[in-house]
């Protein structure tokens, strides 16, 4: 972070800048900055990294949305402003007319959704617990390794 600070470029150039001077300055700064090629390579290849975020963060909004979207509402919304009154009325009649026919299907689906979302939530909690435990154990291993190397040295 020490290569070139603000303003020094402007101070060095008395005449108005042009794009060629800007380009030269960019490449001069690259030389001066001392970028580590190894780190650069790691950054360039980073797009293919596996997602190492904690599970809670990865599941993020999907998990919190689950309870709200797991129930299929039979009386679905019909406030389509583009439909005319006649079309809307026909749709409503159809919805009412098919209610008894489809009710058991929706009930079955809702029952399945409810059970699965509860199971997913439970699994997510269990995984989060495992993740915490893994972190705790990793820390413990580090401490033990340090202790072991100290013991070896003292012997």
């Amino acid at each position: 972070m020490k290569a070139e600070e603000n303003g020094s470029f402007a101070a060095r150039q008395n005449s108005p800048v042009n794009i060629q001077q800007i380009m030269d300055e960019i490449y001069r700064r690259i030389e001066a900055r001392g970028y580590s090629l190894e780190e650069l390579k790691a950054i360039e290849n980073a797009y293919s990294v596996s997602d190492s975020r904690p599970l809670g963060e990865r599941l993020g909004s999907s998990l919190s949305r689950l309870p709200a979207i797991s129930r299929v509402e039979y009386w679905w919304n019909m406030d389509d402003e583009l439909d005319g009154k006649i079309k809307l009325t026909v749709k409503k009649i159809f919805r009412k007319g098919t209610y008894f026919y489809f009710k058991h299907v929706f009930d079955q689906q809702n029952d399945f959704n409810k059970t699965s979302s509860a199971a997913i939530k439970c699994l997510a909690e269990f995984c989060s617990g495992l993740e915490l435990e893994k972190k705790r154990l990793e820390k413990r291993i580090l401490v033990l390794e340090k202790k072991l190397s100290q013991d070896v040295k003292s012997k």
Partner: peptide, 30 residues
Amino acid sequence: DSGIILKTNDLRAFAEAVWLAASSEKVRRY
């Protein structure tokens, strides 16, 4: 011909260009 247009895959050039454009008053004005 406006802006800094770079036709390179060298990310360092972009990083430096961004910082130059953001911090050098003369470059900004230009």
